[in-house]
Nucleic acid binder design. Structure first.
Lengths: 247, 247
DNA sequence: GGCGGGGTCTGATGGCCATTATAGCATGGC
DNA sequence: GCCATGCTATAATGGCCATCAGACCCCGCC
C-alpha cells in the first residue's frame, strides 16, 4: 500500500548542486580507499555532488543506468514496487555505500528504485567515467565486490527471515539490523539514525502497516523500545535479540 | 523440516577425484573467459576436480573458506539451516557458476551450506591460489562481480516474492526461474534439469511440504505440469506465467 | 516375498495475520 | 488558529496456510 505517494508525485528534482569538497570524498569513501594519493586528482574531476530532499526518488527501477551513486549524507532505501501497489524495502544504505553499481556495471536498467528517507547528499559518477576508472584502476573492483557482498548477505538474511519467521521476529530482526549499521548510543538506549515510519517497517518485513503498528505497540508496552516522530530508540536490545533468536 | 537428514549423516566424503581435462575447464568456464591463451597453463596447475554423490554436502555454513568451487557438472543448492530445523534454499547453481567466492574473498566462514542435488563434479581452487590469481589477473574480478550480481538479483526477486506473493504464485515463480536457467525442451514441454522433491520446492518458497504438494497437485490436475520421480516438466508455461504475474 | 523408509497425497482443525473500518493525533501549510 | 493530510492506533472478521494425523506408493534391501 503506497499510501506515502501522492497522486501527481514523480521523480523529484534534486534540490541543488551543493559544494562538497571532492578531495574529502576521495579520501573518505571506501570505493577509493585503494587509490594512491597521486591518482586522487584524476578521480576528483569525475565527481559531482547532488542533494535530495526527504522522500525524493533518486531513480526508478527500469531507468537506464546513467550514474553510479555514492551516499555522502543521509539514508537511502532500495525498494521494489509490486504490481498490486505494495512496496518492498530491500536494503537501507548510509554514508559510504554504493548505489546502482550493478546496473552501471552491466549496462542493464536499474533493477530497483532508490528513495531518500531524509535529506541526503549523493556523489555521482557518470557510467562511462566509472567504467573508465574501473579499467584504469582495477583495484576499484574490490570495493564493488565488497558492496555486492554486503548487500547479498543482507538479502540472504532477509530471505531466510521472510521464509521461516513470524512477523514479530521479522520486525525484531529488522530493528536490530538497522541498529547494527546506523545507530548511536544515547543515555536512553540505542537510537536508530533515520526517520522510520511503520509503513517503512512493514515494507521491510513483508507485512502490513496495521500489523507493524501492533507489533511495535507491543514492543513499546513491554518497555523494549520508545518511538517519537519516526525516531526509534531500542532500550532493551537483549529483549529484541531474544525474540529474534529464541528456540 | 529436514526429513532428508538421517541422524548420523555428516559431511559426505567426495566419492573420488576424477580425471577432468583442466584445459577444457579453463577454456569453458566464465571465470577464466578474460584470460589470454598464454596464461592458461599458469591457471591449470591450481585446479583440481572433485566428485560428489547425490545429496552430499560440499561444505557447511560456518566452515572456514578453504576453497572456491566452480560447478562443472550437476546442480548444487545453496541453503541455510534454521534453528527450528527448517531449511531455506537460497539458489540453485548449474555448470559454470561459482560457489563460496564471497567467503574466500573476505576470509569469512561460508555463510551458507552447499549441497548437491544429484551427482556432481566441482573444480576447486585453494583460497590462497585464488587470491593470487585475483591479484595477478585483475580481470577475474569482473567474473566475480557477475556471479555476485546474478545471485543478488535472484535474492532480490525471492525477497519480493516472499514478501508479497501467495504460495501458489511463489511456487509458479520458482518453477519458472528453474526452467529459465536449467531446462531442456522436450516434445512434452520444458523439462527442469534436476531431481526436485516437494521438500526442495517448499524450501525454495518458504512453505511446507504439504502445501507444496497441494499446489503441485493442483498444477498437475490443471494440466500445466507433469512430474515423475523428481523430474518436473512444464507443459503450459503461459499458465504458470499468468499465475506468476496476474493483477 | 516381506519389510522399511522416503516421498507423495488427502483431510480436519486452528492460528496467524490480512483486510476492513473507524477514530485519534500530530504536523505543516495557509 | 484552523484545516487537510499523513501517520498511528485498535477492534472485528475471515482467509490462507501451518499443523497434525493418517494412508498410499514406489523402490531398494534383506
Amino acid at each position: 500500500m503506497d499510501t506515502k505517494q501522492s497522486p501527481a508525485e514523480h521523480k523529484a528534482q534534486p534540490s541543488e548542486k551543493l559544494r562538497v569538497n571532492m578531495m574529502q570524498v576521495v579520501r573518505n569513501v571506501p570505493l577509493f580507499a585503494s587509490l594512491r594519493e597521486r591518482d586522487w586528482e584524476d578521480v576528483v574531476n569525475l565527481l559531482n555532488a547532488i542533494c535530495f530532499p526527504r522522500d525524493a526518488y533518486v531513480f526508478f527501477e527500469g531507468d537506464p543506468p546513467e550514474y553510479l551513486y555514492i551516499v555522502w549524507m543521509g539514508r537511502i532505501k532500495l525498494i521494489r514496487h509490486s504490481p498490486d501497489g505494495r512496496d518492498v524495502v530491500l536494503d537501507v544504505l548510509g554514508p559510504g555505500r554504493l548505489i546502482g553499481e550493478l546496473a552501471v556495471f552491466e549496462g542493464a536498467p536499474y533493477s530497483q528504485t532508490a528513495q531518500t528517507m531524509e535529506e541526503a547528499a549523493l556523489i555521482t559518477i557518470a557510467r562511462a567515467d566509472f567504467l573508465y576508472l574501473l579499467e584504469r584502476y582495477p583495484s576499484l573492483a574490490m570495493a564493488v565486490i565488497n558492496e555486492l557482498g554486503r548487500r547479498l548477505r543482507v538479502a540472504n538474511d532477509l530471505v531466510q527471515s521472510l521464509a521461516v519467521d513470524r512477523v514479530d521476529r521479522r520486525i525484531a530482526r529488522a530493528l536490530l539490523r538497522l541498529s547494527l549499521y546506523n545507530s548511536v548510543r544515547t543515555d536512553e538506549g540505542i537510537m536508530i539514525q533515520m526517520r522510520l515510519t511503520r509503513q517503512d517497517l512493514a515494507d521491510m518485513t513483508g507485512t502490513t502497516v496495521e500489523t507493524a503498528i501492533r507489533v511495535m505497540s507491543r514492543f513499546r508496552k513491554e518497555g523494549w523500545i520508545t518511538t517519537q516522530r519516526g525516531r526509534v530508540i531500542i532500550k532493551q536490545p537483549e529483549a529484541l535479540e531474544q525474540i529474534a533468536n529464541q528456540r
